[in-house]
């Protein structure tokens, strides 16, 4: 069982996301430590990409802010190395296939292991293309996280059957971003997942309020929040860490409430 799966060990997990280097890596590191202090079970670190096609405007803009500050993939690895001295929370990269491919898939994953990463999420890597990246992940002991979407239907069994770490359930159609309402029949999706794997599953896309986070984690094993946090970073810039910490606490409390 991987460190990621262990993080779920009988409890609901909150997985906050942050775009690395927005507005700089020092702020990212402070925010991550605040997240951990306030109950985050796993942290998702976005490596910025110039053209993030699965993201809504909030995270798109964060990617561009980070890149215009000159952040590179190597800088992000350095930050994780530093972060690892201060926390052992499971860490998962979220980025796009070209960032990994152009770096050299093998070298990227070797670095992931060296700096102490636990998992990798590639939103533009569907099941059909997974084997291009999966062997290098396996070799380095990095969980390649699979996603399922409201449109996955009969694909769920196959995807869940091969899943590692946790399954990322995309709550709604469309790109990342805050939504006032989530209408997908997530309960049915989760049941299908449960029939095919023991791997925990967490729901993301569109979640921002404590109530949504609570509801989502009741029907699954946890909730993932990105845009709402990135918005806080955008609003508070280099002073964002305490605001992020406060927000993470609010969400964690809601997830742990009965």
């Amino acid at each position: 069982m991987s460190r990621i799966s262990e993080a779920f060990n009988g409890k609901k997990v909150f997985i906050p996301f942050i775009t690395c280097g927005d507005p700089d890596l020092k702020t990212t590191e402070e925010c991550v430590l605040q997240m951990v202090k306030n109950g985050a079970g796993i942290v998702e670190l976005g490596i910025p990409f110039s053209d993030p096609t699965a993201e809504g405007p909030v995270i798109q803009e964060a990617n561009l802010r980070a890149l215009s500050g000159g952040i590179t993939t190597d800088d992000v690895f350095d930050m994780v190395r530093s972060l690892r001295k201060k926390t052992d929370v499971p860490l998962v990269f979220m980025t796009y296939v070209n960032v990994v491919f152009s770096y050299g898939t093998k070298k990227f994953l070797e670095n992931c292991r060296d700096v102490g990463m636990d998992g990798l999420i590639l939103p533009d890597l569907p099941y059909e293309e997974k084997e291009e990246f999966a062997p290098a992940c396996r070799e380095q002991g990095i969980d390649l996280i699979s996603l399922i979407a409201p449109t996955s239907n009969e694909r769920i069994a196959r995807i869940a059957g091969d899943a590692e770490g946790f399954l990322y359930i995309v709550s709604s159609l469309g790109v990342t971003g805050v939504r006032s309402e989530i209408t997908t029949d997530l309960g049915a999706m989760v049941s299908l997942v449960r029939e095919n794997t023991d791997i925990p599953c967490a729901i993301g896309f569109g979640i921002s309020t404590p109530k949504q986070a609570h509801d989502m984690s009741q029907i699954s094993d946890g909730a993932i929040i990105g845009s709402a946090i990135v918005r806080l970073v955008a609003a508070h810039g280099r002073d964002a860490a305490p605001f992020v910490g406060e927000y993470v606490k609010e969400i964690t409390d809601a997830i742990n409430a009965d």
Binding site: P126, Y127, E128, I148, A149, G174
Partner: peptide, 13 residues
């Protein structure tokens, strides 16, 4: 070539 797209679009393609 290939199909490097989000899972959401897979059934559509």
């Amino acid at each position: 070539g290939g199909q490097y797209i989000p899972e959401t679009l897979m059934n559509a393609v």
